[in-house]
């Protein structure tokens, strides 16, 4: 999908300039880059070591997530994280991790960066794998004992993987 979009790129940056014109800043150390935390691509690039299952995730969720998302992840202070499958083309679409998100890698990335909402960055990477495995299990996407890690998570096929299309505007007929 994004390949369609990328085809039209024409940004006028000079590619691969051999030298810096102003010499601004300096080279970061590997540690300075690492300290920013992982960046995660939909192909799994950037996912760190660690692993977890839905079984383990059930406990992480009860302890760290249920307070806001509800015991069954049906939503409370935070949004619902399950349900909505088959609703997207109806008058009342319900967009959740299960019904809408195209990549499981993005769930890992988001929970790792932004959740728990009031204390992001407080989970270990394996706890994040476990919590994500649990959410996938609740949505019928992964088995209870399926191990989620950098490799297996990237292989998960989300139900709405093909649900995203490029911007179609301008699209108004007069």
């Amino acid at each position: 999908m994004w390949k369609v979009l990328s085809a039209a790129l024409l940004f006028s940056v000079v590619l691969g300039a051999q030298s810096a014109k102003y010499g601004a800043g300096r080279a970061p150390s590997a540690e300075e880059i690492r300290a920013l935390g992982p960046t995660v691509g939909p192909d799994g690039r950037g996912l760190p070591p660690g692993s977890g299952t839905a079984k383990q995730g059930r406990e992480v969720f009860a302890a760290r997530c249920a307070r806001c998302h509800g015991d069954k992840a049906l939503g409370d202070v935070g949004p619902a994280l399950v349900g909505g499958k088959g609703s997207l083309a109806t008058a009342k679409p319900v967009k959740t991790v299960g019904s809408f998100w195209p990549y499981a890698t993005s769930v890992w990335d988001y929970v790792n960066r932004a959740m728990p909402f009031d204390k992001p960055g407080s989970l270990t990477h394996s706890e994040v794998y476990s919590a994500v495995a649990f959410l996938l299990h609740l949505n019928g996407i992964a088995g209870e004992t399926e191990v989620m890690d950098a490799k297996s998570l990237a292989r998960v096929r989300m139900p709405n993987r093909d649900g995203f299309v490029p911007d179609g505007r301008p699209d108004v007929k007069r």
């Binding site: 960046t39 691509g41 998100w101 993005s106 988001y110 299309v165």
Partner: peptide, 21 residues
């Protein structure tokens, strides 16, 4: 990276169930 805020949010859901990203 198909991050949460460009997939779950800020995408435009069309009547056919597809979302513009």
């Amino acid at each position: 990276h198909m991050t949460r805020d460009e997939t779950s949010k800020y995408s435009d859901l069309m009547p056919d169930g597809k979302a513009r990203i």
